[in-house]
């Protein structure tokens, strides 16, 4: 396996401002978030609390609030904020103009492990 598997997943405009879209890869769902200031992040679409779909949450600053029980997750680090403890898997992401690319190395390891 090489160090990076960059894969184009879509364009910036595909994602609503302060919103998210999903990228499906087998059993794994990756949520790609776009913040108010047009930064983009990729996290596994699974809250560390009760597996809530983070892509369905409300995006504010560089955080998302899980729709199931309101855990707040940092998009930058994947860490739960405030009193809650837990982490979401993050995926390296880069932009090529409007195109969004995700490094799927980690996702592939996850897929093999599962």
């Amino acid at each position: 396996m090489s160090d990076h598997h960059w894969q184009a997943v879509g364009r910036l405009d595909d994602i609503p401002l302060r919103g998210a879209r999903c990228v499906k890869m087998g059993e794994i769902t990756i949520a790609v978030f776009r913040t108010a200031d047009n930064r983009v992040f990729a996290l596994e679409d699974r809250c560390p609390h009760r597996n809530g779909p983070l892509s369905q949450g409300i995006v504010h600053d560089a955080c998302v609030t899980c729709p199931l029980h309101n855990w707040v997750i940092s998009l930058e680090t994947g860490l739960a904020q405030g009193a809650d403890e837990g982490a979401v898997r993050t995926f390296p992401l880069k932009r090529d103009g409007e195109r969004i690319l995700i490094d799927l190395t980690r996702a592939m390891v996850m897929a093999v492990e599962e």
Binding site: H5, Q7, V9, G10, D14, I15, P16, R21, C22, V23, K24, M25, G26, T29, V32, L104, A107, M108, A111
Partner: peptide, 16 residues
């Protein structure tokens, strides 16, 4: 429509 459809569906093979 974007709310209900994934932005992309990838197969593991495609990524490799």
């Amino acid at each position: 429509r974007h709310e209900f459809e994934p932005m992309a569906e990838l197969s593991l093979e495609a990524a490799e």
